[in-house]
């Protein structure tokens, strides 16, 4: 069964409340609701998610049309939300939520080499490693550098470019402040990329996986 409902002009929480009451009736599979603003769209999106229903919001002139559908399989569910996904009508914070839900891997570099062989060769290998991580599309949440690892951020480091690429992709690239000072790199490394042991510990313990080549 389908229902259409005009919720324009109602004050919060009436729009979400009335939609919820409609959807409490399991025989109703689809609701088309008209709402005033983005706040209502966000709230109906949350309601739909809690009911495992799909939601599509289309901006109209001065209002939004929200379509909530349920009763589909999971596969259909993801496909239909992709198909109907209207960037303009997505909940305003969806991109922010996404950015906080990246993979939970952290790369921890406590030296500027990959293994302990010939010094120059080992440095080259580390750059190659980072380059490969980037190219294979892995998106670690953070790359943390300590001890000689902070030298990777020096102006003449062969790994600098790839670290910048990671940062541009939204990965936190952070160097231990004490180490930066010790190795005399304080003036070359941007302030917002300098962190402390406390933060390093929090990143490592919050990580699902720590990769330390």
């Amino acid at each position: 069964m389908e229902e259409r409902i005009d919720l324009r002009g109602l004050t919060c929480p009436e729009p979400v409340l009335r939609t919820k009451r409609l959807l409490d009736d399991q025989s109703i599979l689809k609701v088309e609701a008209l709402v005033d603003d983005q706040v209502c769209v966000n709230n109906l999106s949350r309601l739909s998610r809690s009911l495992k229903a799909t939601v599509t919001a289309l901006p109209k002139e001065g209002y939004f049309q929200v379509v909530i559908e349920r009763g589909q399989s999971d596969a259909q569910l993801s496909r239909s939300s992709e198909k109907h996904g209207q960037p303009a009508a997505k909940p305003a914070e969806s991109s922010l939520a996404d950015s906080s839900q990246k993979t939970a891997e952290v790369i921890f570099l406590a030296k500027d080499t990959f293994g302990d062989g010939d010094a120059e060769f080992s440095k080259t290998l580390l750059s190659l490693f980072l380059q490969s991580v980037l190219e294979t599309g892995h998106q670690p949440r953070a790359i943390l550098m300590a001890n000689t690892g902070v030298r990777l951020m020096a102006a003449d480091s062969p790994a600098l470019k790839v670290l910048q690429d990671f940062k541009a992709n939204g990965c936190e690239v952070l160097a231990c402040g004490l180490c930066v000072e010790f190795y005399g790199l304080k003036d070359v490394i941007a302030k917002d990329q300098i962190t402390n042991m406390f933060a390093i510990v929090e990143y490592l313990f919050a990580a699902e996986k720590v990769i330390s080549p």
Binding site: C12, N42, R46, S50, E93, L96
Partner: peptide, 16 residues
């Protein structure tokens, strides 16, 4: 309640 969409406009504004 928040998961079901009972979220005041002010919360979205604060978030922004």
């Amino acid at each position: 309640l928040a998961a079901e969409g009972f979220v005041p406009a002010g919360a979205y504004a604060n978030r922004q």
